[in-house]
Nucleic acid binder design. Structure first.
Lengths: 212, 212
DNA sequence: TAGCGAACTGGCACTCAGCGGCAGTTGGCA
DNA sequence: TGCCAACTGCCGCTGAGTGCCAGTTCGCTA
């Protein structure tokens, strides 16, 4: 679903399968019975994984709930070096890279992603965990940019602001994407990519927004 | 510290004093012995408040840890109607309002605020809780703006982006403000306000940041 | 292809955050 | 003065997350 099960050693594939099994059990369960009503113990029972292992695979219950969405950011982080080697306005470079990563998510990613996004919208605890991952992403970008544009004044702040805009555009796009009632079955990733692109291009105009 | 103890009914003043006592005990303890090492039970013991009441006064341990910083956002939220009645670019309006709120925080606010900010920098759990409050702020602004500029295209997204920039500028300013080793005793609120203003005016230039 | 070492695993018991229920208290107000 | 509603403390519970350790499984090397 979120990690191809056909690469690496036997061991790492087994882990990937376990993680995947947990995600597959968890997200529909969260949607049907409620996030709080589904306990980690129950999930472990269902997926036949010990609780101890659960916390080796996931940083916590929220991490599990956000796996599909977080995978996007984690992939982006992993590819940062390559991304930041490109030329052009940072906002475009990062924004484009984000869209590309979404386009490359494994087949079948959409359905859990929608469930994950909805959970994030309704459960602040989950939402917060998602923001944390975005924050980690921002930190990486800032570090890389500061090192790269060593002398530039306020490169640090600029990088932060750019990331904030990208993250905001992404959030807005995902919100819109997952809200139609039939999104879980019909939302396409092309749609999401289009939404992200629209938000990204519309974002700079926000600075002109004036009251009265 | 964070709420004047001289207003409202006897009852509400008692509550305010309890909250304050807890904050006063907690923040230094977190700083000295570590956030995780200080348990809620211990804090309740020290402040002579039952655990049950603790969770009536605070949304959780992180909420307590962030009280000084969160108070800023909560005040801003409370005054939103008045703030959004002003004229001018939204970014300026909201940014200015934020600075004004900081300026009006009660005397002695600085020291716990610094401790709070440091905690937020070192403990992701705390940081996440802080972002959640900012998110709540953003949501309020978005709702108000959408209602106000009913017809405007993408008013929703624009409001989000503006808030994201304000929040980012604030974060950057607070980071810089609390990092000198002697900040806990010497950091002044004028300094913080200046930092926020600088970040806010520098932020729009981020859109121009270009690689190579 | 045997076997060694490292990495992983499950199980158990534990800590701690946070909540629900309830009976007792307190303060606001008529 | 006395009533009512809001608040309080206490008890016990659930569930997330961790530390420990002995057992196993896999990958690698000879």
């Amino acid at each position: 679903m979120t990690t191809p099960t056909t690469a690496g050693t036997l061991r790492s594939r087994r882990i990937a399968r376990c993680r995947q099994r947990l995600v597959e059990v968890a997200l529909p369960a969260f949607a049907e019975r409620g996030y709080d009503a589904v306990t980690v113990d129950w999930l472990c029972d269902q997926a036949e994984v010990s609780k101890r292992s659960f916390f080796r695979y996931f940083a916590g219950k929220e991490d599990l709930a956000l796996t599909p969405l977080n995978d996007v950011w984690r992939t982006l982080i992993a590819e940062l070096d390559e991304v930041l080697a490109r030329r052009g306005p940072l906002l475009e470079v990062v924004g484009d890279a984000l869209v590309e990563v979404v386009e490359r998510m494994p087949p079948g990613w959409e359905r859990p992603a929608v469930l994950s996004a909805r959970l994030s919208g309704t459960h602040p605890v989950v939402d917060a965990a998602g923001m944390l991952v975005c924050e980690r992403f921002t930190q990486q970008v800032v570090d890389a940019i500061v090192e790269r544009l060593d002398g530039a004044p306020a490169a640090d702040l600029s990088a932060r602001v750019v990331c904030a805009i990208v993250v905001t555009a992404h959030r807005a796009a995902v919100d819109a994407w997952c809200s139609p009632p039939d999104a879980a079955t019909s939302a396409s990733r092309a749609e999401l990519c289009a939404l992200i692109r629209t938000s990204l291009t519309a974002a700079p105009a926000a600075l002109e927004l004036t009251l009265d």
